[in-house]
């Protein structure tokens, strides 16, 4: 089974982001970059499927600047077989342009399955997986927490409000991974050494003009200082009143 995992390099969630002077994107200085955590579930699932089948290939596909090769290397260290980096200037790119570039490479690779994270934690777009499926004309199951593959067929469980939905579709398909799908492995020291010898193919791509333009970004307002309502049991009624009437959270 040939599996393509789409991976995005994103700022570490511990990073305190700052805006760049244009106010339309993030200041990349001093930001440490990591594999998008939801993509780690996708990588792990691909590796597990390959191991269960005893054969196959896991290809990591990334679009971004040349530094994104580091994220691919991480996935190779976990056990993926090879990587492809589509080098492009993503400063003004929208989800459509990125999905077009990814899907045209996926079409050439003609995999049995495409796995993505359910969303990237930086822009929270959650568009690329479904858009790739749409462009390829393949079925797509999003926010998947359990995946079973039988010949030519996918059975996936996905999170819905208050419950679980079970879906079936044919292969090839696009699946987006949710937390809970699996427990991503650590890159082992052996895996890291082996990854050095694995291929990362770099290709320059030009993205189509964006249909969507970011007009501005802003940081959330700072939190105001807390207020002591009182102490002991006597303070409870007042606290409840404030939570209900002022904060309107209960």
């Amino acid at each position: 089974m040939k599996i393509v995992v789409c991976l995005k390099q994103v700022p570490d969630s511990e990073t305190r982001v700052k805006l760049d002077p244009t106010g339309k994107s993030l200041d990349s200085a001093g930001v440490s970059l990591v594999v998008n955590p939801y993509d780690e579930y996708a990588i792990e699932e691909a590796l597990k499927l390959k191991e269960a089948a005893g054969a196959g290939e896991v290809i990591i596909l990334t679009l971004g600047a040349s530094g994104a090769a580091t994220a691919i290397r991480n996935a190779l260290a976990m056990g993926a077989d090879r990587g492809i980096l589509l080098k492009a200037d993503t400063a003004n790119a929208d989800a459509r342009a990125i999905s077009e570039a990814l899907s045209s490479t996926i079409k050439e690779l003609s995999p049995d399955l495409v796995l993505c994270g359910k969303q990237a934690i930086d822009d929270d777009g959650a568009q690329v997986g479904p858009r790739i499926a749409e462009l390829l004309g393949w079925p797509c199951v999003t926010v998947v927490t359990k995946l079973e593959i039988s010949p030519g067929k996918v059975r996936a469980e996905r999170e819905i409000e208050g419950g679980i939905e079970v879906c079936e579709c044919a292969l090839p398909a696009v699946i987006t991974a949710q937390k809970g799908l699996n427990e991503p492995r650590y890159a082992s020291l052996k895996g890291i050494m082996a990854a050095k010898k694995k291929e990362i193919l770099e290709q320059d791509v030009t993205l189509s003009a964006p249909g969507l333009v970011t007009s501005s970004m802003s940081l959330p307002a700072g939190r105001s200082a807390g207020r002591m309502v009182g102490s002991g049991k006597e303070a409870v009624p007042e606290l409840v009143r404030i939570l209900r009437e002022e904060a309107r959270v209960i």
Partner: peptide
């Protein structure tokens, strides 16, 4: 090197 940082980070996470 890139591998050295990866080794450190993997053990760090563990």
């Amino acid at each position: 090197t890139e591998e050295e940082i990866m080794v450190r980070d993997s053990v760090r996470q563990f």
